[in-house]
Amino acid sequence: MSRVPSPPPPAEMSSGPVAESWCYTQIKVVKFSYMWTINNFSFCREEMGEVIKSSTFSSGANDKLKWCLRVNPKGLDEESKDYLSLYLLLVSCPKSEVRAKFKFSILNAKGEETKAMESQRAYRFVQGKDWGFKKFIRRDFLLDEANGLLPDDKLTLFCEVSVVQDSVNISGQNTMNMVKVPECRLADELGGLWENSRFTDCCLCVAGQEFQAHKAILAARSPVFSAMFEHEMEESKKNRVEINDVEPEVFKEMMCFIYTGKAPNLDKMADDLLAAADKYALERLKVMCEDALCSNLSVENAAEILILADLHSADQLKTQAVDFINYHASDVLETSGWKSMVVSHPHLVAEAYRSLASAQCPFLGPPRKRLKQS
């Protein structure tokens, strides 16, 4: 649940008159999402009104509101027999009622949201009550392989729920002597030191190019640089560091992050930047690179990204790559990247197969709970 924001200063709310007192009302909304995959969808019983329910879910471990999704594969009634019906059901509720908006969509073979439908307002739910769409999607369109909505005969539904909580009022009075504290510009100011090479005390040599930097900042941000300058190493004695395995453009992006906490060109060089972040123990930059690479996972590059993640101990990226390969196994196994990995990294192939087997055979063990970014 997000923290209630402070109200904007009255002088910034309007260029008009300023009242002596004010009130700011925040209506709290808890948002969460749920993904439900139905394997072997074409084998569902086709009687009209037949119901399939998901397991229950909530916004978190401490949330007492429990929900589930309900599907009628062949419609709810005679009117909707040519459609799939989809509903959000409130299973248990400690209150007399709650209000919530919802959005349903289908994830296609690429994991993209399609055929989205959402409620136009927050509906009133009581325990045992459901709301949804009797005519969510035509069955003939859903079952047509050309539309790519049932890869490997799996129907994957994605649901986003927004639950309306209580409202909170914050009130106060205006004073004539309003003090406005300026925003912190530390990142910009440190970035200026790097860009202008002011007050530098060490030189970093990268592929024949020299960059002036500040030992204190490098040591504070990177345990690797800290070790170089702290001990009686040649880098500490000469205040000069030779860097041979990072390209200059990648190095500059890494230094921008060290000084400012930002990497504006990360998406263009996420793979190389991940390697640099791993070498210099820049954990936050490493996770930022993992996130960017996750966003660009595809059938063509899944094997290469899995190898990269394994090489640099990028655990979150590795998990996402394995899950992606499992979901698109029939396509990924035909790529040149996968065939190369079979020869060069057989242990990763074995890991992917083990994960695929456990996903398809849940009876082999208890269900695993899916539970950071600093």
Rank of each mutant, 00 (worst) to 15 (best):
L308F: 11
A216I: 13
S355R: 05
D82F: 10
D272Q: 09
R139P: 13
H345C: 08
I305D: 14
T114M: 07
D315G: 09
R221C: 15
M176I: 07
D323N: 04
P367H: 08
P17L: 02
R45K: 07
S358H: 03
S336E: 07
L76G: 15
L193C: 11
P362C: 15
A146S: 05
M13E: 01
S33H: 09
L76M: 10
D188E: 10
C68F: 03
K215Q: 09
A146H: 04
K372G: 08
A187W: 12
R3Q: 11
P264R: 06
M35R: 01
K154G: 15
R370M: 15
D152I: 12
F229R: 15
F211Y: 15
P9F: 03
M48F: 06
L204R: 00
D272F: 05
I258G: 09
E183V: 07
Q360K: 07
S197A: 13
V164F: 10
A277F: 00
L333Q: 05
E112P: 14
E113C: 11
T335A: 05
V343S: 09
A350V: 05
C68I: 07
S33R: 12
R368N: 15
A329F: 12
Q212G: 15
Q173F: 03
V71L: 13
D291E: 07
S167C: 07
G148A: 01
K64S: 10
M269I: 06
T335K: 02
D153C: 11
M269V: 05
K268F: 10
V98S: 15
D323E: 11
N326E: 13
D331P: 08
H312I: 11
K372N: 05
L84K: 12
C68V: 12
V206H: 12
E78N: 11
G132H: 00
S54R: 01
D77N: 10
M35Y: 08
V241H: 03
P8R: 03
E247D: 03
Q173A: 04
N296S: 04
I137N: 06
F225Q: 00
V322P: 00
G148K: 01
M176T: 01
K154N: 07
L90P: 02
M13S: 03
R221K: 14
L157M: 13
L306N: 01
I137C: 14
N62F: 05
E195A: 03
T200E: 12
L88Y: 00
S105Y: 13
L282R: 00
T114L: 02
E234T: 14
H345Y: 08
I137P: 00
A352P: 06
E46T: 04
N169Y: 03
P8I: 01
W338R: 00
D63H: 15
D77H: 09
E160R: 04
Q373N: 15
K110P: 02
G208A: 15
L371W: 13
V51E: 06
R240P: 05
L285V: 04
G75M: 11
V206M: 10
E249Y: 01
A100K: 00
N40D: 04
S54H: 00
A276V: 05
E97K: 12
T319Q: 04
F57K: 00
E334P: 11
P10Q: 11
A281P: 00
E230N: 15
R124C: 10
V322G: 05
S105Q: 13
N72A: 03
V71T: 14
R221H: 12
A314I: 05
L65R: 10
E195D: 04
L356Q: 04
A281Q: 10
N108C: 13
S197W: 15
E235Y: 10
V161K: 00
H312M: 14
F211P: 00
D331S: 09
D271N: 04
M13P: 07
K318G: 12
G16P: 07
Q209T: 12
V168N: 09
N326Y: 07
E235G: 04
L317N: 00
W67V: 11
S33K: 12
E118V: 05
I38W: 04
R70H: 13
D271Y: 05
D323W: 08
K129M: 11
S96G: 08
P7L: 05
V343N: 07
L65Y: 13
E160I: 07
A309T: 10
A329Q: 03
M117R: 11
V71Y: 10
D188Y: 08
S6A: 06
Q320I: 12
N177A: 07
E113K: 03
C23T: 14
S358L: 04
V342N: 08
F41E: 11
K53G: 04
K66Y: 10
